[in-house]
Design a protein around this nucleic acid. Structure first.
Length: 531
DNA sequence: AAGTAAATAT
DNA sequence: TATATTTACT
């Protein structure tokens, strides 16, 4: 995890002595909370009267670091006055009632958190984070008297340790480890430990590989289950470079240079500390979430599909896909597994699509739509450009609006942090699997008229905005959508044309063929719009 | 190394 | 319990 036991020893008493103002009209509740907090070495001052609490804060602002205030249920806005008045304190609101509007109001008024009662130890244990956060987030002169020492304390602790210790020094600080661990503990040589030393009990399960498609976020030091991976591949997630982790730790993580360079000016240091704290919290959250599984997020899946598209069906094998994806921590096995599912998915959901795209099948035409008529399509579709639409209800009436509807209907979660689900959403055209991976809006995604093979041969060289075909239907996609699709078509001529595009006119095709020295036209080309 | 099936985890 | 993911095997 993020820090070692040694680090913990240096910080174990940290929350000790932090003073908590507790405002709760319910004596029993107050006593219970106070008891729990004191068990964790917080110092608790209990108030049951809001005005008294306020006067205490105003007269002795240096006496409190954080406040826990109950939103009174007995009278309107009980506790809110305190919240609005004691701006210098990080204030945690709490209540028995679970009312989103109340919660929202509290947060809007500046509460750092809203905790529903009862306040368990887990909820209370880390309230110190709000203190530290406030201490580092408030501008220097505006920092309350009570928080200054906290900031100084934390800063000095970090500062001290940043200046001294060697990477593996007995008292190396958690910050240093937070950054260094990725370079050491995750290295093959350090794979001996079954799990990295956890910083907190709940982190002992080890880390889950969290990769998103951008390779931006991730990984923590999970370690190899067995040191001897037959593949030589490591399931451990190596810390990435050039990603968030690296960026965050950059201010202090310069292992090649002398330590002194890490700590330049106080300001830099503080900035670095803030980043580090954010990083630590971030990593902790990630770790709590996880096991060693690769999480195929939408972004990651997009990368995968992009790689597959780029390679082409024939060449899309795990090792090559892996190379193209360039996602650290990902193994060939991971990719192979995903590919397996990908193929199965396509075979089940898109048998026709599959026929066309996967090499083992022949590519001769066949009746693609045994169950649904294709009457909804313009005549030329029935020839060689086989629309994929009719397979699914939502495609029954090919309409560009359906392009836009993808996202809104939640068929394909593009949110970066969201995991891509494989569930065959009702009505979803399985083309989701084969959709282009360009980071373009939902609308562009897919809708590729997969059987437009015959078009692809010349569309790349003839298609530009001026020759851009009219859409097959009356509604035209947005300009930028078209641009993207065209770009895609040009860059990847081997892919079929997107649905909604029709081939260039016969004239332009003939001209192009002629330009390429082809004078004879295959007999299958009949009408001006057919291919 | 790739593909498939079984095992396992969530 | 079903499904997603990993692991084992050919």
């Amino acid at each position: 995890m993020v820090c070692t036991r040694n680090d913990l020893s240096a910080w174990k008493d940290f929350p000790k002595g932090l003073r908590v103002l507790l405002l709760d009209e319910d004596n029993d509740s107050a006593a219970e909370i106070k008891s729990k907090l004191e068990a964790m070495d917080y110092i608790v001052y209990t108030f049951c009267n809001e005005n008294e609490a306020l006067s205490a804060v105003s007269s002795r602002p240096e006496s409190f670091h954080v406040a826990i205030v109950e939103v009174s249920t007995s009278r309107n806005n009980g506790g809110l006055k305190f919240l609005e008045t004691a701006k210098d304190l990080p204030i945690i609101m709490t209540s028995n009632i679970h009312c989103i509007s109340t919660m929202m109001k509290c947060i809007a008024l500046g509460a750092v958190e809203f905790l529903r009662k009862p306040l368990s130890e887990d909820k209370l244990r880390n309230i110190w984070q709000h203190v530290v956060h406030k201490a580092f987030s408030v501008g220097g002169n505006d920092l309350s008297e009570s928080l200054k020492p906290v900031k100084d304390s934390v800063a000095s602790m970090l500062h001290l340790q940043s200046e001294e210790g060697e990477p593996k020094h007995e008292h190396s600080d958690k910050i240093e480890d937070a950054s260094v661990i990725h370079e050491n503990d995750c290295e093959p040589s350090a794979v001996n430990n079954k799990y990295p030393a956890p910083s907190t009990p709940q982190l002992e399960q080890g880390g889950r590989l969290l990769v998103n498609g951008d390779g931006q976020e991730h990984t923590n030091c999970s370690t190899e289950k067995e040191s001897g991976d037959p593949d030589g591949e490591s399931k451990s997630v190596e810390t990435t470079s050039g990603n968030t982790v690296a960026e965050v730790t950059a201010p202090v993580d310069q292992p090649q240079g002398p330590r002194e360079t890490m700590v330049k000016e106080e300001d830099d240091l503080v900035d670095g500390q803030i980043l580090i704290l954010v990083f630590i919290v971030h990593v902790q959250i990630k770790l709590i979430e996880k096991n060693l599984k690769v999480e195929w997020t939408t972004e990651l899946h997009k990368k995968f599909v992009q790689a597959v598209d780029q390679l082409g069906i024939d060449q899309a094998i795990p090792s090559r896909i892996l190379e193209l994806m360039k996602v650290e921590g990902l193994t060939r096995h991971n990719v192979a597994s995903h590919l397996q599912k990908y193929r199965m998915h396509k075979r089940h959901i898109l048998p026709k699509e599959d026929d066309r795209r996967w090499p083992q099948r022949d590519q001769t035409q066949r009746s693609c739509f045994p169950h649904k008529p294709i009457m909804a399509f313009p005549p030329y579709h029935s020839n060689h450009v086989v629309p994929v639409g009719p397979f699914y209800p939502m495609w029954g009436a090919p309409h560009p609006a359906s392009l836009q509807s993808w996202g809104s209907q939640g068929y394909y979660p593009w949110q970066p942090t969201e995991t891509w689900h494989w569930k065959p959403y009702p009505g979803v055209h399985a083309d989701a699997w084969g959709c282009p991976v360009m980071p373009i809006p939902q609308g562009n995604c897919s809708k590729q008229s997969k059987n437009a093979e015959c078009l692809r041969n010349y569309c790349s060289s003839t298609m530009d905005n001026s020759s851009m075909p009219q859409t097959c239907v009356e509604h035209q996609p947005a300009e930028e959508v078209i641009d993207e699709v065209v770009k895609e078509a040009i860059n990847k001529p081997w892919l079929p044309l997107p649905l909604g595009l029709k081939p260039p006119s016969t004239e332009s095709v003939l001209a192009e063929l002629s330009r390429q020295g082809i004078s004879t036209v295959p007999p299958l080309i009949n009408g001006s719009n057919s291919c």
